[in-house]
């Protein structure tokens, strides 16, 4: 079983579970399965084309899957998969807070 670590701000979509076991063999299959189990989580995980959302990074252990086999990175027993939300912002182009 691989173990998927859910980031704190997205745990509301997994019934506040921080860790979820997965018996899938690849990152793509594990993420799709997670989205299927928790439908409200899906829009944060996958884009409209069913690909891993661009605002999400997936790390296997300490490695970005983009440096491995991307979505087809294989999962083994005891593999730790981290879902990492992109954390970024900026100080221009303010939106209308008064609407």
């Amino acid at each position: 079983m691989a173990q998927i670590i859910i980031p704190t701000p997205l745990r509301k979509f997994t019934n506040n579970q921080a860790k979820i076991d997965s018996n899938k063999n690849t990152v793509q299959a594990a993420i799709e399965d997670l989205a299927k189990q928790y439908p409200n989580f899906q829009k944060h995980l996958l884009d409209e084309a069913g690909q891993i959302h661009p605002f999400i990074k997936i790390f296997v252990g300490e490695d970005d899957i983009l440096d491995l086999d991307k979505e087809q990175t294989t999962l083994e027993n005891n593999t730790i998969v981290s879902i990492i939300p992109a954390i970024a912002g900026g100080s221009y182009n303010y939106y209308n807070l008064l609407k």
């Binding site: 980031p7 704190t8 701000p9 997205l10 745990r11 509301k12 605002f55 939300p85 992109a86 954390i87 970024a88 912002g89 900026g90 100080s91 221009y92 182009n93 303010y94 939106y95 807070l97």
Partner: peptide, 17 residues
């Protein structure tokens, strides 16, 4: 710049935080 969120801040914002 002022202490106001930008559109970029909003686009990247996460629930709960």
């Amino acid at each position: 710049h002022p202490a106001l969120p930008s559109i970029h801040d909003l686009q990247q914002a996460l629930p709960f935080f």
